[in-house]
């Protein structure tokens, strides 16, 4: 049985802040920063947007593309995020209720830094392939937190993407998936802390590159594929530089990465990052083209997926707005309004 993506949907809040406006506040040189991280501006949620609202918007777009799938046929909803609105009370129940999937549905929030939703996709693949359900949905959404003045403030953004997994009406087949996981102290947030912490020297080599490269290699070895078999490669995008370096280590061309490299314009949407990159690729891919996607979550782990686009893509992607529309739908905020939206002022 062919199993894969039956519907996908993206959502990015309208507001942006430019790196130069953040740099001005902290007395840093904007040019040096943007050259260093390859991010020029990032998305910012409105005061009334959070992970639940972003997840619902993305999921509604996924439903539009999953033409003909009835809400009652979706029997699993997973929401992956590191900014769930409640510490206790699932985001997934609000999403399930807003989409009319309740009550005969399993729902849960997943958490694994930026790769929580690709873990949800793997769970859906298993449930669908095992014959337990017809369709499952996994959504990655975040309103990423960063301490004022921290380096993360230039990239921590908001956005999300939703994927409906099934065996009927597949617009992109998932031929294989595998994971690579280790305990790495690169990035964490303790219970009750408002902002995450990171250990600089662990971020690159032992964390991001180790998991992304080994996981991608392992999947290609299992499937007997090589970088030139893929038209596109999508990686988690903590900044504009890391995905390009990972691609070059693995033997991919820059041209295979750039269509998914949306981080320069919207920042790192955490759990939404690799999934929004994949959505940007699905917005333009031709039938028969292959995509390798590898997510990354701090702590640390990666999930890799090998995907082949089917001939259903062209008709179905037109049923909802593309990622590029959301990237260009924007309005700029000053640092002070940004600080208000992100609740940096506290009583």
């Amino acid at each position: 049985m062919k199993v894969g993506i039956v519907g996908y949907g993206a959502y990015i809040p309208k507001w942006r802040i430019k790196a130069e406006n953040i740099a001005k506040v902290w007395g840093q040189d904007a040019q040096t920063i943007t050259n260093g991280i390859g991010v020029h501006e990032k998305s910012v949620p409105s005061l009334d947007e959070d992970t639940a609202t972003i997840a619902v918007e993305a999921a509604r777009n996924a439903m539009k593309r999953a033409n003909g799938v009835k809400p009652s046929e979706i029997s699993a909803v997973y929401v992956g995020s590191e900014s769930h609105p409640y510490a206790v009370k699932p985001t997934a129940v609000t999403v399930a209720e807003a989409l009319g999937l309740t009550p005969y549905v399993t729902a849960a929030d997943t958490e694994f830094a930026c790769k929580a939703a690709t873990a949800g996709i793997q769970a859906c693949l298993g449930l669908v392939k095992g014959g337990y359900m017809k369709y499952g949905m996994s959504i990655g959404a975040d309103t990423a937190q960063s301490a004022p003045g921290d380096a993360l403030e230039y990239t921590a953004a908001a956005g999300g993407a939703a994927y409906i997994i099934g065996g009927d009406g597949v617009l992109a087949e998932i031929e294989g998936t595998c994971s690579y996981t280790q305990d790495v102290p690169d990035f964490w947030r303790r219970e009750g802390s408002l902002y995450p912490k990171h250990a600089g020297r662990f971020t690159g080599e032992p964390a991001y590159f180790e998991q992304i490269v080994k996981c991608s290699k392992s999947l290609m070895e299992k499937l007997g594929t090589k970088p030139s078999d893929y038209t596109y490669v999508v990686f988690h995008m903590p900044n504009g530089k890391f995905p390009l370096k990972a691609a070059s280590i693995l033997g991919f061309d820059t041209k295979q990465v750039t269509p998914s490299l949306i981080v320069q314009k919207i920042g790192n949407t955490y759990s939404g990052s690799s999934l929004l990159g994949l959505a940007a690729v699905l917005d333009r891919a031709k039938p028969g083209e292959r995509v390798l996607m590898t997510s990354y979550g701090s702590g640390a782990g990666s999930d890799s997926f090998s995907i082949t686009v089917t001939d259903q893509i062209e008709e179905r992607r037109r049923l909802a707005p593309p990622v590029q529309y959301y990237i260009e739908r924007k309005g700029y905020l000053s640092y002070s309004i940004y600080a208000k939206n992100r609740k940096l002022f506290r009583e």
Binding site: S46, L47, D48, E49, D50, A52, T53, V56, A98
Partner: peptide, 15 residues
């Protein structure tokens, strides 16, 4: 789909 109101910081969020 948006947040409508929050019942203070520890209360229920209405969407």
């Amino acid at each position: 789909f948006r947040k409508l109101f929050e019942q203070e910081q520890s209360g229920i969020i209405s969407y």
